[in-house]
Design a protein around this nucleic acid. Structure first.
Lengths: 348, 348
DNA sequence: AATTAGCACTCCCTACATGAGAGTGCTAAT
DNA sequence: ATTAGCACTCTCATGTAGGGAGTGCTAATT
């Protein structure tokens, strides 16, 4: 579809533009990349590439800039692999040295390191409960109507919450309820716990425990409202300031729109809700208005074989794609290590 | 110290500058504020005020701008009280409608509302464990060496953590340890729990429980490392984007320095660690380099009579002082209400 | 038929000059 | 003590000119 030479030219334009952030013209192209032809030929090729939609021209007497489509072709077909420098490796390895008890601390550090080494915005989602399989549920009576509910996953994460239960529930029943919930839920992933399943469980409970239907419905509501939102992992955002070093973010208004967006955690979560592997979203491939000249590259990481969370970088479409991909892959492995050597996650 | 008229002039300059963000000259001053004298007189007064350090001149043929000292005199002596408009009240009241289970959600919303209504950056610290008095400690055996430790305060907050205890500790002893810790710590504020006190407790434990010294030291370390950092409340930051609307934040470099700072949670915490009441830090009164043309106004809020946390606003020194103060006071009362009607705080 | 040299042309960016506008300080008059 | 008047300063917006980079097209070359 694209002649060999056109591909070469496109690749040259993209990497040149990624480095310089300046529209690249035929002269600089032949000078810096050894394409044994003259500038006139390059001009013709570039005109063709523009007509095909791979390049764009800011104005008539400027050089060319890759379009979203150009970047897309580049990442799909032309990009080389990037090697991290040893100093970058060293920087990212700082993550291992944190040895923090709190998963929080590790994730904050991860997002910052991502940003620092890329000079874009770093994003990390916590190992979500959704991903891990449930190990057990524990209900512990505290005082009066307050009950502490604990949720453990197989990969050692824990979630806790104080529930307010109706006064009729007897502390003595909690043990039974705990083992019952555990029995019915263990081995499932949290996202599989639908309201239907919970309904079903309550129906069964009705037989085993001689409680009124209303009472059980009450418990249902408590537990359900608890499980749902807590399943969502938090999104950690780091190094927002670094992106201001990029020439495409010298415009205050643009920065403001971006910051508005970055404060919307649900949006970010949606941005990172991804299937396993590397995923690249370039410019207008993204639905969000304010991000149409940004690229997001995300990678998933696993903990003990289970998909756990996402690491990602957000920057201008003129992003150092291959470098960022390497960084993300390395960071993913760092996180896997950090979370598997950790005694047991979570808290607070 | 300052003649009546000078005070009038200073006040007029400050409020004019707060509104317009433009250096204010003698002409506009006599026009918009009825100071029954001529521009020449005002010019003389302003020259005096400049010499005394209350005003500054960006360049020789511009109007005057208040200096840090000028603002300080203004807030200490000249400022009027501000009334919130009903629409602002309505906006801030949205906080009550959230009715969230999670304290997190409320605090995020609070920081955003603060920002939205002020167009500066909103800051909120969570009710810190440090502030409340301890009610009880509970240790619950989970499995193998894992023990769940719970900390309750009198105002209903809870903090949880999984501790890894040495294998020699017997699950049966946990109950005893729990009541012992509770007995010794209840009624104290977390910040009073010094290492000396803990040492003392361990010494006593040595008698009651027939355990080796090393074992207890191990527990000591676990509990201590847990209590310390978790006592610090989180800092919630909201509406960073709003400050970009201010004319003093049109410079990307300045914004970057500010963002760097806002990502340093320890710094923010230090910024907000305050005694009760309203506190105003103007420009160079602040030690941090990057904040020397910013002002922070903070107010504390209480929960059930106990000092709990801080609400604050960070903006340019040209801040609408009286308005922000009203907003903070109102927000503080909103938070107090939100946390006292809440069944019981915390989780996750 | 593909490539290249040459050239006229376009557009941006910077530097520079100019003039209006706002504000000041000073002096002399009130 | 206050004020009117005035010369002076500095900023900012506007307009203009010239250099630079890059293009597209045409004609010559391989």
């Amino acid at each position: 579809m694209l002649s060999d030479r056109k591909q070469k030219v496109l690749k040259a334009v993209v990497s040149e533009y990624i480095n310089t952030a300046e529209p690249v013209g035929s002269r600089t192209l032949v000078r810096r990349h050894k394409l044994g032809v003259s500038t006139a030929t390059i001009r013709n090729e570039m005109a063709d590439l523009e007509e095909m939609g791979f390049l764009e021209q800011p104005h008539v007497s400027a050089g060319r800039v890759p379009s979203d489509r150009g970047y897309r072709f580049y990442v799909d077909n032309l990009m080389d692999q990037d090697q991290l420098t040893s100093s970058e490796r060293r920087l990212l390895n700082q993550l291992a040295e944190i040895r923090a008890q709190e998963a929080d601390t590790v994730l904050v550090a991860a997002s910052r390191l991502l940003s620092q080494v890329s000079n874009y915005v770093g994003l990390v989602t916590s190992p979500s409960l959704n991903a891990g399989r449930l190990a057990s549920v524990k209900l512990i009576h505290l005082e009066q109507r307050l009950t502490l509910a604990l949720l453990f996953t197989e990969n050692g994460r824990m979630e806790s919450r104080v529930l307010v239960l109706p006064p009729e529930i007897e502390p003595a029943d909690l043990e039974g309820l705990s083992t019952y919930f555990t029995h019915r839920l263990a081995g499932r992933r949290l996202e599989e716990v639908t309201s239907e399943l919970l309904d079903q469980i309550y129906a069964e409970l009705l037989d085993d425990f001689r409680q009124s239907r209303e009472l059980l419905a009450e418990i249902a509501r408590s537990v359900l409202s608890w499980l749902r939102p807590s399943g969502r992992g938090k999104v950690y955002l780091g190094g927002t300031h670094n992106i201001l070093k990029q020439p495409e973010f010298q415009d205050i208004d643009k920065v403001r729109h971006l910051l508005v967006l970055l404060e919307e955690e649900p949006l970010l979560r949606q941005l990172l809700q991804r299937e396993p592997g590397i995923m690249i979203t370039i410019g207008r491939e993204n639905e969000l208005e304010a991000m149409q000249d940004c690229t997001v590259i995300s990678a998933t990481y696993t903990v003990q074989g289970q998909p756990a969370g996402t690491v990602a970088v957000l920057g201008p479409t003129r992003m150092d794609y291959s470098h960022v991909i390497s960084v993300l892959q390395y960071m993913a492995s760092c996180l896997e290590e950090a979370f598997s050597t950790q005694h047991s996650g979570s808290s607070s």
